[in-house]
């Protein structure tokens, strides 16, 4: 009897079973996942840079340890995700090459600058908060290795979000200058964070397949709304003002009405016009290039060791 692979794949999706690396899968599904997971991995790696910008200036020993551990976690997430993507038949070198040459995308939020210590707090609170909204959904993604990587990543991310909020708490209840710093960070990060959920549903080119394949389970607008609802309360507690005059509770939808971010700016930053796009990519390229002789030395030494073992 001939097995109909496509029916088998569809029936797994219908039963909420995981698709595993050795299972048959449609080529578009594979491509979609490689794109999404590798972009996610790149985002973690590039995301080390804006926060890393404050490691040497963290204002207390404790905050320095916390930030350093956080940036290291992001690197660890990058590592799991590259491994999950490799299970789909792409090599780490190919993915890195796509990042370094600017062919691959990463989350555009990391092209915004971290200008003050409050930005480290705001990135944890808002950016990690938004990332968690996306990632909680991805824990139930249909591709097994991705789903499992997300379970682990989500635990750490929610820790990071609490740490970010803790920084905001110290600032918001601190001196007048600290409170100003916190408000300024919220003003600058609010709309870029709303953009993280992607374009409005009516304009989102990749969403339809992603929902059908259960790679994504909620739409961009649904997630964005949930994020706004959650964050308004948190800002109120801090005594900070969300920079949106139209923000208003809407009883009929049991959620807040809010202003759209500037989608023209969104497209412009994705195209490369953010103040940090070039610097982020240059920093990645510099580290890669300066590490080349280190990697070559390790490979050469490893080879010599193997040869001497064979000879002995």
């Amino acid at each position: 009897m001939e097995i109909n692979f496509e029916e088998l794949f569809e029936s797994k999706l219908a039963k909420n079973d995981f698709i595993e690396p050795k299972d048959w899968m449609p080529e578009n599904y594979r491509k979609h996942l490689i794109r999404q997971i590798s972009q996610h991995a790149h985002s973690e790696i590039v995301g080390m840079l804006p926060e890393g910008n404050w490691i040497t200036r963290a204002p207390s020993l404790r905050s320095k340890l916390v930030l350093l551990a956080k940036v290291q976690d992001e690197g660890g997430h990058g590592l799991y995700l590259y491994t999950a993507a490799e299970s789909l038949g792409i090599s780490r070198d190919e993915m890195l090459d796509a990042l370094l040459t600017g062919k691959a995308k990463y989350s555009s939020i990391f092209n915004y600058p971290t200008l003050s210590w409050a930005d480290v707090g705001a990135v944890g609170w808002l950016v990690d908060g938004a990332a968690i909204m996306n990632q909680v959904m991805l824990q139930r993604s249909s591709y097994g290795p991705y789903s499992r990587a997300m379970v682990r990543i989500c635990k750490e991310e929610s820790f990071h979000q609490r740490q970010g909020y803790e920084i905001m708490t110290h600032l918001a209840f601190g001196t007048a200058a600290q409170k100003d710093m916190a408000q300024d960070a919220l003003n600058r990060w609010w709309y870029p964070t709303l953009m993280m959920f992607g374009p409005p549903d009516v304009e989102s080119p990749n969403s339809e397949n992603a929902l059908k394949w259960r790679i994504k389970r909620e739409t961009n607008d649904q997630l964005r709304q949930r994020f706004v609802n959650q964050t308004v309360v948190q800002a109120e507690y801090l005594g900070l003002t969300i920079p949106d005059e139209k923000l208003k509770w809407n009883e009929s939808k049991k959620g807040y009405d809010y202003s759209d971010p500037d989608w023209i700016e969104f497209k412009s930053v994705i195209k490369g016009n953010g103040i940090c796009n070039k610097e982020r990519l240059m920093a990645r390229n510099k580290a890669h290039k300066e590490g080349e002789w280190v990697r070559a030395a390790a490979a050469a030494y490893g080879k010599k060791q193997q040869e001497s073992q064979v000879a002995a």
Binding site: I45, M48, G52, T56, Q72, G75, L79, Y82, V294
Partner: peptide, 22 residues
Amino acid sequence: LSEWTGHGPFLEEDLALTNITL
């Protein structure tokens, strides 16, 4: 050492040196 975090010669080594730094 913390100046290396995020700029290490490759990802695994970046993580290892950061561990030491911590």
